[in-house]
């Protein structure tokens, strides 16, 4: 085969390969162009019969031709495979906007979240979190907190008491009640831990309040207590102002005004400027010396501040909720909005 003819064969073979319509046709084309009976194979087998000077020249040309055609077959094979796969994938097309495979997810209760948020603000500045019993002794709920025995907050119109249940006589400081505030944990915590104390106490509290948009017989509070050798009124203000900024946003402004609580002296109320008005947000004050005495701390050795805030109120203010009953009705249309 002369070289001119070879060029023609290669050109035709190449066209055949590139025209292969699918993988089977390509296999046929490969066999036709490079197989044992192909013109090139035949020519290769005839090389030995050529004159030595021609032999090298033709041999090289045929090898080149085989290489070119083999590469052409491989290219075509890749192309056909890709085409075939693409056709399959095209058949595999789905509508991704179909709502399949979505993992279920519930929501946390907003009160739980709010309590975690508040606790986390204080944890970030080194306050631990503690919880206390909901059925509490009058001693911790009232007496240890410097509340006089005749104070109206002790009346059944405010505080829920219990019927006798185990034959034990309980009266005075030993009487059991549903705690009306998280403050009793102040006394419990100090009894168990020597100063310094830095703690916040989230929890459920109870009052004899009938349901309306802002009252619920069950609600939640977070108590805070800091006791050390050198705490002043400025520490109280700054710490709570810090809390307000963390909770309501960096621009939250606070104002402290005098108030009265039996267990703090001086006492204050913190107002927060939110949505264009001053809102009463929490009660606070310097721990009354009588409280320190009740728990066995020396009021000459330590000072401290305490505060208590309503969780429902915090959540209602921050999230524009106007009816406290939403928290306890468990309506999934409401719970589902908590996030």
């Amino acid at each position: 085969m002369d070289l001119e003819r070879l060029a023609g064969v290669v050109s035709a073979a190449r066209a055949r390969i590139e025209a292969a319509s699918d993988l089977a046709d390509l296999a046929a084309a490969e066999s036709e162009t490079l197989g044992r009976r192909s013109e090139i194979a035949v020519a290769r087998r005839g090389i030995g019969r050529l004159a030595p000077d021609r032999r090298r020249q033709v041999g090289r040309a045929i090898n080149e031709a085989v290489g070119v055609l083999t590469a052409a077959v491989e290219d075509r094979r890749s192309a056909l495979r890709a085409e075939a796969e693409n056709a399959l994938l095209e058949q595999d097309r789905v509508d991704l906007t179909l709502p399949y495979g979505r993992p279920a997810r519930g929501t946390h209760h907003l009160l739980t979240r709010t309590m975690e948020d508040v606790c986390d603000v204080f944890r970030a500045i080194g306050y631990e979190v503690a919880e206390g019993p909901e059925l509490e002794l009058a001693w911790y709920n009232f007496d240890a907190l410097n509340t006089p025995p005749t104070h109206p907050s002790r009346f059944e119109s405010d505080t829920m008491y219990l019927e006798a249940f185990d034959g034990r006589e309980r009266s005075g400081p030993d009487e059991l009640l549903l705690r009306t505030q998280t403050s009793p944990m102040q006394a419990r915590f100090m009894e168990k831990n020597p100063p310094p104390v830095y703690v916040v106490v989230p929890g459920r509290v109870f009052r004899t309040d009938t349901w309306d948009a802002t009252h619920s017989p069950v609600f939640h509070q977070i108590e805070g207590l800091a006791v050390d050798s050198d705490i002043t009124f400025g520490d109280l203000k700054g710490t709570l102002a810090h809390f307000a900024r963390e909770f309501f946003g960096a621009s939250a402004r606070t104002r402290f005004v005098p108030h009265f609580f039996p267990f703090t002296e001086p006492s204050a109320e913190m107002l927060v400027w939110f949505n264009g008005q001053w809102l009463e947000m929490l009660g606070c004050g310097m721990v009354d010396p009588n409280v320190f005495e009740a728990v066995g701390y020396d009021p000459e050795e330590v000072t401290g501040f305490a505060f208590g805030m309503g969780v429902e109120r915090l959540a209602m203010v921050r999230h524009g909720i106007t009816d406290i009953r939403h928290f306890y009705d468990s309506d999934l249309r409401v719970l589902g909005q908590f996030r």
Partner: peptide, 16 residues
Amino acid sequence: YDRFPDLVRHGRQGSL
């Protein structure tokens, strides 16, 4: 009350 300074009081340990 407004004339007292605002001092942030840090505690000791805030881990759960």
